[in-house]
Structure formats: structure tokens, C-alpha cells
Design a protein around this nucleic acid. Structure first.
Length: 502
DNA sequence: AAAAAAG
């Protein structure tokens, strides 16, 4: 019996613009999705778009300005753990003199998440600009977007049209975001209006910013008071994601977006020492990014309370259900101390919208708006896909041919990055070993490796040290790695939904 | 069916 493997290749061999999603297989979108109407919205007359205030803030306790001002006595970085939300915010920047000179990229005790801002080399600059999203904006113009629900806030065309606040606007510029992506154009105004949202969008569509901007903006405006517990922290926003690496990535982005806003994002996931994460939490947390298992652990230890949650975002929800997280997610959202729908704002993101997600949406969301963004990958300008049928015994030599061709394709003297997906952890190790023996610098990422090894592998791949990464579907969705030129599906996926990633 | 996620 012959097997097949498919590869997808960024059409544009100019590597600077060839960055693609880690899972950029570029398969056509689901036509069914765009026409889906949520059950509760069927058979309703279309509603005209009403006049709309573009930045009404979500429910807030009061309107005071001067975020974090009530903790004047706190000492950021002091030896005593700071409880609740004290320990950062205005205390870090205003006074105290702790690192306030901002020497090595540290300002007010906050590490600059943007790294070195000076981009001198012109090629590097072009690279960096692509890196900000990995997306060719021009390919976006005609992407169909569908919304349904009552009183849907109209989309915006520029970030300037949205009043996100000065600090956030500055960070958007630092991220070199020029123009909102389709999901951002629609989702941000809807979220800023305080509405719950169910959004179908794929990886690389700019989802993270779409839910982070309104959350950060809302927290800045909200001035939420919080209790102080002994070792218990009270985040205002919770972002759940299926894999540890995706949580890390969301956290990194959230840190950039919230830089110097006084809003603090913390990440918690399994496989890493919990003590370090606990210390980080004790220093204060507004936005908690977490994988479900570790969060349940933290909740059971009463180190985190969800009582003050105002914003809940679930990323890659269908994937979380696929991975069997529904019990944990329901425990977190329904059986702990989180405010019910209506008293919090909930944003649910999923690549697909099957029955289970529909059920989750009707349980977690209140009077929500449904948003479907067509797949970017359907643009053949962006990605070329090739399927080759080869005998199982020829697969490796076939891959080797492809990798050899790739070696001459690099830029800046570095080989461009190739991501190889395989079905099993064992298969990943075997392929890596074989590649290594064949003279290729390859590494692997899969669930049998320690978290340290996984993170090291990802760093090594991103840096180009090992330009080949063999991965199981721990990396199959959500991760967005700049400069990936080739994505190879070495084993034909059994699950076609995984293959088209929605 | 395999993979992922809490030790």
C-alpha cells in the first residue's frame, strides 16, 4: 500500500515575504462555515446597524483615573511578596527609584519585550516588519467576513479609528502593526462595545491582538478594585489555550501590547516548576494566560481566584475540546468562583464551529455575536500546496531531496526554516535521528520531551540553529513562527479537520 | 488512532 505526503510551500521564494503559519498548509477553507447561522439567530429579520459608540467600556466599577494608585507603599521587587495587585503599576514607575532609569531595557521594573528597537540593516527591517504578523496584508482585502447577532458594532479600517488609548496605540506602533486584520477590524469594535463574541478564525489571522487589545484597554479604563488575599491573586482577565507553547506565545504578545500600561500579564502552564510561576503571580497579575491543567491546580491550591474575572478568552476552543479539556474548562468556567455570563465578557475563538463548540458557546456566552472570517490560506497568492504520492519506502529520500533544495534557498547565509509534521512521537524521534545522521540540523517537539527540551527546540528552530523542526501536532495549531518557508506533512493526517486546521 | 495536558 502506498502512502502519500504533502508539502506546502510558500509561493514566493523571496524568503522575506515567505513567512507563513507554522501550519500554513494553505488548504481551501470550509465553505459551510461562512454560511453558518447560530441556532439562536436563525429566522430573524436582518437588523439595521444602529448608531454606535465606538468605545463604550465594558462594565466598570468606577471611573477613577490613576490606575494602581492605592498601593503607594508597595515596593516592587521587594523581598516581601506583594499580595493582590499591589507591587506594580504606578508604584513601579512613579517613584521608589527602583530601576526607574531603565538601564538595560528595563523601565520601571518592566523588561522591554520588544528587545532592541534599533533596526539598522534594511533587510532586517523588512524582515522585522513581516515578522510582526507573518501576514501579507494586501492578500486580505477581499477576505469575506460574516457577522450575525443584534447591534453588531461596525468594523473599522484603521487602528486610529478605535480609541484604545495612548499607551496601547504606542505599543501597536512598536509592534509595527500597520492595519488591522479582518478579524481585528470586526472583533475589536464588538469587544470594545462590551459584547460577547464567538469568532471563527484561523491561526495567523491576528486573533491574539483581537482579544488582547479590548481586554487591555478595558482593564486600563476599568479601574477595577480587587480584594487582597493571603497568597491568593485575583486576575481580571483569563486567557485559556490548549498547549503550553501557545500559552507562552500569547503571553509574549500580551506583554508587548501591555508594555508600560500598568497592566500585567502572567503565564502559567504545566511541565515547568510551579514555584516560579507562583512567585510571578504574587507580584501581581491582571491577565492570566494558562493551560487548563495547571490553572485547575492553581485554583485548587487557592493561589488564584477567578472571582474578579471581567474578561474570559478561550483560544483554539475546538482544539481544547479535541484534547479532552472540556471537563477542566467547565470546571474552571462554571464550577469555580468565576462570575457568570453577563457579568463577565467572554470571547470564544475556534477554527471550526461543530456542535460541541456551539454548546460551549451557548453555555459560556451571553447574547453573543457570531463572527466568521474566511481562511487566509484560501488565497493561492500566498501559499502553494503540493501533494505528492510516494511509496512509504521513498518518503525519507524524497524529504531529503526537498531539504537539499531548501539549503540553497536561505537568506542571510542561513537556511530557511522547514517544519515537518509527523503523526507520532516515536516517528518524530526516528525522523530526527535519521535527518541528523544524514547531516541535517534537526530537532523535535512533542509531548514525550520535557518542557525544557520543548522550549529549547522551539528557540533553536526560530533562531535558525536547527532549521528543521520535526513536530507532532503539539505544534499543529496556533503557533505562529516567523520565517517558516516550508511546511511538510510527512504523514498524511488521518483527521482531515486537523489537516486543514479548520 | 495519536497526541496533548497536572503531578
Amino acid at each position: 500500500m502506498s502512502t502519500s505526503w504533502a508539502d506546502s510551500v510558500a509561493a514566493d521564494n523571496n524568503a522575506a515575504s515567505g513567512s507563513s503559519n507554522i501550519n500554513g498548509t494553505g488548504v481551501a477553507s470550509h465553505p459551510a462555515r461562512s454560511t453558518y447561522v447560530p441556532p439562536h439567530l436563525r429566522n430573524r429579520p436582518p437588523t439595521a446597524e444602529p448608531p454606535f459608540s465606538s468605545h463604550s467600556a465594558p462594565p466598570s466599577d468606577n471611573d477613577r483615573i490613576g490606575y494602581g494608585g492605592s498601593t503607594s507603599g508597595s515596593r516592587p521587587g521587594g523581598s516581601r511578596p506583594d499580595y493582590g495587585r499591589q507591587g506594580y503599576g504606578s508604584g513601579g514607575r512613579g517613584g521608589g527609584g527602583w530601576n526607574s532609569r531603565g538601564g538595560d531595557g528595563i523601565v520601571g521594573g518592566e523588561v522591554n519585550p520588544f528587545g532592541n528597537d534599533d533596526v539598522n540593516d534594511e533587510a532586517e527591517r523588512a524582515f522585522a516588519e513581516q515578522e510582526s504578523t507573518g501576514i501579507n496584508f494586501d492578500a486580505y482585502e477581499d477576505i469575506p467576513v460574516e457577522t450575525s447577532g443584534e447591534n453588531v458594532a461596525p468594523p473599522v479600517n484603521t487602528f486610529a479609528e478605535i480609541d484604545l488609548g495612548e499607551a496601547l496605540n504606542l505599543n501597536i506602533r512598536r509592534c509595527k502593526y500597520v492595519k488591522p486584520t479582518p478579524v481585528q477590524r470586526h472583533a475589536i469594535p464588538i469587544s470594545l462595545a462590551g459584547r460577547d463574541l464567538m469568532a471563527c478564525a484561523q491561526t495567523g489571522s491576528g486573533k491574539t491582538a483581537a482579544f488582547c487589545f479590548p481586554i487591555i484597554s478595558g482593564i486600563i479604563r476599568g479601574q477595577f478594585e480587587r480584594p487582597r488575599g493571603y497568597r491568593t491573586v485575583y486576575p481580571l482577565a483569563l486567557i485559556l489555550s490548549p498547549t503550553r507553547e501557545l500559552s507562552m506565545q500569547i503571553h509574549e504578545e500580551a506583554r508587548k501590547f501591555s508594555y508600560q500600561t500598568g497592566v500585567k500579564a502572567v503565564v502559567a502552564y504545566g511541565g515547568a516548576p510551579i514555584n516560579q510561576q507562583l512567585r510571578e503571580l504574587e507580584r501581581g497579575v491582571d491577565i492570566l494566560v494558562a493551560t487548563p491543567g495547571r490553572l485547575v491546580d492553581l485554583l485548587e491550591r487557592a493561589r488564584v481566584s477567578l472571582e474578579m474575572i471581567r474578561y474570559l478568552a478561550l483560544d483554539e476552543a475546538d482544539r481544547m475540546l479535541d484534547m479532552g479539556f472540556e471537563p477542566q474548562i467547565r470546571k474552571i468556567v462554571e464550577q469555580m468562583d468565576m462570575p457568570p455570563p453577563g457579568l463577565r465578557q467572554t470571547l470564544l475563538f475556534s477554527a471550526t464551529f461543530p456542535k460541541e463548540i456551539q454548546r460551549l458557546a451557548s453555555d459560556f456566552l451571553s447574547n453573543y455575536i457570531f463572527l466568521a472570517v474566511q481562511s487566509v490560506g484560501s488565497s493561492t497568492d500566498l501559499i502553494v500546496q503540493r501533494v505528492e504520492f510516494v511509496h512509504a519506502s521513498d518518503k525519507r529520500s524524497h524529504l531529503m531531496d526537498l531539504l537539499h533544495a531548501q539549503m540553497t534557498n536561505g537568506i542571510h547565509g542561513k537556511q530557511s526554516l522547514t517544519l515537518v509534521f509527523v503523526e507520532t512521537k516515536k516517528g518524530a524521534d526516528a525522523l530526527e535521528h535519521w535527518l541528523y545522521a544524514s547531516g541535517f540540523h534537526a530537532t523535535t517537539i512533542h509531548g514525550d520531551r520535557t518542557q525544557q527540551e520543548r522550549e529549547q527546540a522551539l528557540r533553536s528552530f526560530k533562531s535558525g540553529n536547527t532549521p528543521i523542526l520535526v513536530a507532532t501536532d503539539v505544534a499543529a495549531r496556533g503557533l505562529d513562527i516567523p520565517h517558516v518557508a516550508h511546511v511538510v506533512n510527512f504523514d498524511l493526517p488521518n483527521d482531515i479537520d486537523d489537516y486543514v486546521h479548520g
